[in-house]
């Protein structure tokens, strides 16, 4: 069961703002989906190794070679707000520096 508070917490982590009605709806839908997903708990997976990649390749590297960067116009072209060649954002008030 996914609670209203769970949804609120997750929405905050994912930087999504949800109205109360939406929180309710998501809580209900996620609960339904997770009910189905919980089927996995039936399985005994103790001895099973996890898979994160389906192809078994390792050590994929590139040489340390410089390639041209994007021209400044292209780099900034899509920016919603540009100032002095940089991306401008509202003040960082309420999150802690990582």
């Amino acid at each position: 069961m996914v609670s209203h508070d769970d949804v609120k917490y997750v929405a905050r982590l994912a930087r999504l703002k949800l109205a109360d009605a939406e929180l309710e709806r998501y809580a209900e839908q996620l609960s339904g989906i997770l009910d189905h997903i919980n089927k996995i708990a039936e399985l005994d997976l103790e001895e099973v190794k996890p898979t994160s990649h389906v192809i078994s390749i390792t050590n994929v590297f590139r040489k340390d070679a410089v390639r041209p960067s994007a021209p400044p116009a292209a780099a900034l072209d899509n920016g919603p707000e540009i100032e002095s060649g940089a991306f401008r954002v509202p003040p960082i008030l309420d999150t802690e520096e990582q």
């Binding site: 930087r15 999504l16 703002k17 839908q29 996620l30 509202p90 003040p91 309420d94 999150t95």
Partner: peptide, 26 residues
């Protein structure tokens, strides 16, 4: 938005549709 977090939340709430939000949440 007055601050960065509000900007993120407003942008992502406006920009993403229902199903995308649902999967991000999941």
């Amino acid at each position: 938005a007055a601050g960065i977090t509000e900007m993120y939340e407003n942008t992502r709430s406006l920009g993403f549709g229902d199903e995308v939000k649902r999967r991000i949440m999941l």
